[in-house]
Design a protein around this nucleic acid. Structure first.
Lengths: 218, 218
DNA sequence: CGTATACTTGACCCTGTTCAAACAACGTGG
DNA sequence: CCACGTTGTTTGAACAGGGTCAAGTATACG
């Protein structure tokens, strides 16, 4: 899919599941007053969306931010597959727990943190998730995020993102690379600075879940 | 459990699942700077928590707000039960989708709405969820919420909640009942006023999911 | 090389915060 | 039954973080 194309549209009925192979996308909701809130960014390896399994109306849209390669699975077939493959079931459970964790973290960020720390957290999370999905782990964020995207993630305005980012750059925590990509110069320093729990999403995938679910078809 | 008791504590290892039979509880995270963000309120009928299934460290606490009766299920036994009971599996899937919807709604509220509308949304959601769980559906919120609880839900301060609530009362949208409980005088009026999607969580539970999962042990 | 899109910067404003004091509701013990 | 501590609520005044509007500047792209 090309940038700007919708994988899924608010209020549309879903009956498939997507798996992002490459490229970035975003889940977002558009409000009546023209505002937008991005709920979560989707990186390679992410699943979208459980809602598809229960064949209901989507409460948000999903839009490609870069060219995206994805794998589409019919909901019915997927449920059948779950039946025969406990490992798949365990993966799904794992992925759901991960996603809920990301959503919760997002709530805390938006609800109780300053603009500066919100932004630091967002960048730290993206760098970490990118690495988990096989991307670079050196602090460079693969794709260029517009100020508007960051603003709509964090409940701020593009103008204020611009200012806050300048601050972080001034303090040597973040640098601006070619093509508008961002780099966290020193991940640990920024994490300390921003009270970021480095164990978050660091969870090794515990195999006992796999074992158990392999028998249980969870 | 008594009010103030923890069902689950941040950073503690979980290997059980709870089902709330009666009473209200809250999921929350406490930050290093002493602030608190409530992630979600748990009402009768809610499940807490999927994280328990994969035996990992909790990233948040759960605390009883009223006396709470709950049903505790060992994670391993639950996974075994899933094996034999497709209906249970479907219920779980359903409940996960519901919960993710609630979390997403919360993000939009906190990220892109004014204090007044945030509060209206919170109250509307509670009234709706309460009714879904068998509680009153006439607009009365069963339990007295402190201003601080509402503030920590919505990313605001108790002082500002107090002011905002006064406004809503002045405008005749909400009334204060005995024992500090709140009542939405006219649910539809408030929903219109607050651009609240009344279809949200109104989702009838589709039986085809049950059927399918009954065979598939999803 | 010109246009479009995004980014930066400044000035001013507004929503929600902070601090502080007064007030109400409630339970306890004398 | 009343005094009183406790906990939660209301209100006011001053303040600040972030928003809004507007102008100017990069950067990419055809």
């Amino acid at each position: 899919m090309e940038p700007g194309q919708c994988l899924m549209r608010q209020a549309e009925e879903m009956n498939a599941l997507f798996w992002i192979e490459s490229g970035w996308a975003m889940r977002h909701r558009n409000l009546a007053n023209g505002r937008r809130q991005i709920l979560n960014l989707l990186l390679p390896g992410d699943i979208c969306d459980l809602q598809g399994l229960i064949h209901t109306r989507a409460d948000h849209s999903v839009t490609a931010m870069t060219p995206v390669m994805l794998c589409e699975v019919d909901a019915g077939r997927f449920l059948d597959l779950l039946h025969n493959d406990g490992q798949l079931a365990a993966s799904l459970l794992w992925s759901v727990v991960q996603e809920e964790g990301i959503l919760r973290e997002h709530i805390v960020r938006i609800g109780r943190r300053s603009a500066r720390i919100r932004l630091a957290h967002l960048l730290l999370e993206l760098v970490r998730r990118q690495a988990l999905g096989g991307g670079p782990s050196d602090g460079l964020i693969e794709i260029a995020l517009t100020r508007e995207v960051m603003a709509d993630c964090l409940g701020l305005t593009p103008v204020h993102i611009s200012r806050t980012l300048s601050e972080l750059r001034r303090d040597g925590l973040v640098t601006l690379e070619p093509q508008g990509r961002l780099r966290i110069s020193d991940i640990d320093a920024l994490a300390r600075h921003a009270d970021y729990d480095t164990r978050y999403l660091h969870l090794a995938r515990p195999d006992h879940v796999l074992d158990r679910a392999g028998g249980a078809q969870a």
